[in-house]
Computed example of a mutant assay.
Amino acid sequence: MAGTKHDGGAIELGVGRTALMVAAARAIETHRPDSLARDGFAEHFVRAARTCEDWPLRMEQVPDGDADPLWGRLGRYFGLRTRVLDDFVLRSARAGGRQVVLLGAGLDSRAFRLDWPSGCVLFEIDRGPVLEFKQDVLDKLGATTKTRRVPIAGDLRGDWTATLIAAGFDPAVPSVWLAEGLMLYLSSAAERGLIDTVDSLSAEGSSLAFEVKLGVERPEVRANAVYTSAKQRIGIDLLTLFDREPRPDSTRDLERKGWSTEVKTPFDFTRQFGRGPRPEPDDALASNRWVFASKPRP
């Protein structure tokens, strides 16, 4: 890519900036010899953002390697999460969920890098400036999708049902929903509203994956180097961005609505793949949970 830089905007501020952090982590993961997930677009998103010029894109650019709390430990967490959710959406699509909805899509490039079954369509919902930034980078790369992709500018804290349906989504058809790194930043009311909307739009045979944090983290956990390094080195104060209200139990809410659920820790998948973050004292990742839900057919 020629290297046109972008100044400010939603992608380089607040929650938008976390999408760039994840993209940098995916770039590093892509170039590891033992990579769990490959995303050849990720580094181009980071390079296009003016305020990220000094961020590493390969592990050899991280002086402390995997011991680095930000690009080592947290970066490997994002790489593991990417692989697990890649597997989830592809498995669900191949099982019949040919409508895939990426909630808070950010700099997700799954429409361009995964091998989707024939007839699959991906709806990407996020704020307009984020989608515009992503599209500009992809256009400069001449990127082509591997399935039909429908970007939708919308605010997931409000009512986005009509917008999604107007874009071609059919509530009568089984769908696959993915909220990767989204719920952490929503208010409790917005999270409940999102779960209610997903349920109302999901035909039997649909599936959903999302990430949550359990409870309120102790002061010792809030002082973890994962949080302090993100704030000091790349200007992302995750603890401020995380909503501090008591969290709803969305897993239990889905079960009451008739969904079946499975809750996993990241460390479950570290053991499965033999790569990824492992528990540590006062762990910033210990309360993270990945929830996988399905709406059974009769």
Score class of each variant (00 low, 15 high):
G158P: 04
E124Y: 01
F78E: 02
H44K: 09
G158R: 14
F45G: 04
L90D: 05
T251I: 09
R38V: 04
F133H: 05
G235S: 06
R50F: 04
R76H: 15
P219S: 14
L214G: 14
R32M: 13
N224L: 03
P266H: 05
R73N: 06
V150K: 04
H6Y: 08
W55Y: 10
G168P: 00
L241Q: 02
F267L: 10
I11C: 03
I11K: 01
R38N: 10
F112S: 09
V173P: 00
R297F: 13
K295W: 06
L20P: 00
F88M: 00
A286N: 07
D139T: 10
L182Y: 02
R98A: 11
L285T: 03
V15S: 02
L80A: 09
S207L: 05
A143S: 12
L70H: 02
E43I: 00
G40R: 10
F112H: 11
T144I: 09
R148C: 13
K231R: 14
T265L: 11
R218K: 15
T30F: 07
R81T: 00
P56A: 15
A225D: 13
E60R: 14
L102Q: 06
Q135F: 06
S92F: 05
G79D: 03
V100P: 00
R157V: 11
K231E: 15
V212P: 02
A2G: 15
K295Q: 07
D126I: 00
S229N: 15
R98H: 12
A24V: 00
K257A: 14
P69Y: 10
G119Q: 11
T147A: 11
P69I: 08
L122R: 07
V198F: 05
V121Q: 09
A95W: 07
R256W: 10
R271P: 02
R94V: 10
R94K: 11
L13Q: 15
R98K: 14
T265N: 11
A179N: 00
K257H: 12
I195R: 02
R83Y: 04
V173Q: 07
G193P: 01
R91H: 14
Q135S: 15
L36H: 03
L285R: 04
L57V: 06
R81L: 01
G3Y: 11
V137S: 01
R38G: 12
G128K: 13
T261C: 09
R297M: 15
S187W: 04
Q135I: 03
L194D: 01
G106K: 01
E180W: 02
F169T: 01
L164A: 06
W177F: 10
V84A: 02
R278I: 15
D249T: 05
M21T: 13
